[in-house]
Each structure stands twice: as C-alpha cells, then as structure tokens.
C-alpha cells in the first residue's frame, strides 16, 4: 500500500474516533468509558497529519468537508462512496504503490 495512503487511513480513523468521542460522550461515559485522553489523541492526529504531504492532506481535507469520508473502501469493485465501478486495472500490481481516486466522485480509494 502507498505509505501516504496508509497514513491517510490512520488519520481518518483517528479523526472519526475523536468526533465520535465528542458526539457520543454521554453514551460512552454512561457505559463507564473515560475519555480523558481526547487532547492527546488530537495531538496524535495533528502529528500524523504533519507526516502527510501537503497536496494529499489538502485534497483529503477538501473531500472530508464535501463528503464526510474522504477515503472509502472499494468493495466488490465498487467505490463505496458513490457506487461507481472501479476498473480492474486500478487493482493491478503495477498500481499498488499509487494513490488512486474514484474517477466518478474523486474520493481516495482503499482496498481493505
């Protein structure tokens, strides 16, 4: 996997975790979970973002603003963001180290 994609996936996971901890805090705290580490998790997200090339991060932020999820999994050859078909050539070994976007919606593609 493209190393920048790996970082974008980790960033999206952490940012989603932060939003969830904020939005569902009363529910999670009701179950006994302590969310004191929110600030340190935010620091972790910031430092991860710092490891991502500016052009990739900028594109990720724009997609995030527009769609919520910037990186989407490809399942059964479909972009799970817009359900467009992803050509088989996208998954060939020669493309393994490319950062690829859905040709239809532009979201960053990830093969789980």
């Amino acid at each position: 996997m493209h190393p920048q994609l790996q970082k974008l996936v980790a960033l999206q996971d952490i940012e989603a975790m932060i939003s969830e901890a904020k939005e569902q805090s009363s529910e999670l705290e009701g179950m006994g979970f302590n969310l004191d580490g929110l600030a340190s998790l935010q620091e972790k997200a910031d430092s991860l973002a710092g490891e991502i090339e500016k052009r990739h991060l900028g594109y990720y932020r724009r997609l995030h603003k527009r769609f919520g999820h910037a990186v989407v999994p490809v399942v059964d050859n479909l972009c799970t963001g817009c359900f467009a078909n992803i050509p088989a050539s996208f998954v060939s070994a020669t493309n393994e180290n490319l950062l690829q976007n859905c040709e239809s919606c532009g979201r960053i593609l990830y093969w789980p």
Binding site: D13, I14, F33, N34, D36, S40, P73, P112
Partner: peptide, 25 residues
C-alpha cells in the same frame, strides 16, 4: 489510538477494546 483516549478496561476484570476502522467491512 482508542486506548490513548482512555483505557477500555472499564468492567470489573473486563476490557472492551473497540472502534471503527476502514480496514473492516
């Protein structure tokens, strides 16, 4: 990362590591 937010070992003798990730369907 989830453990950095706060330990998930909240039950007596029980932990509930959890979270969402793109890596699962």
């Amino acid at each position: 990362s989830r453990e950095a937010l706060g330990s998930t070992a909240v039950g007596p003798g029980v932990a509930f590591p959890h979270g969402r990730t793109l890596a699962v369907q």
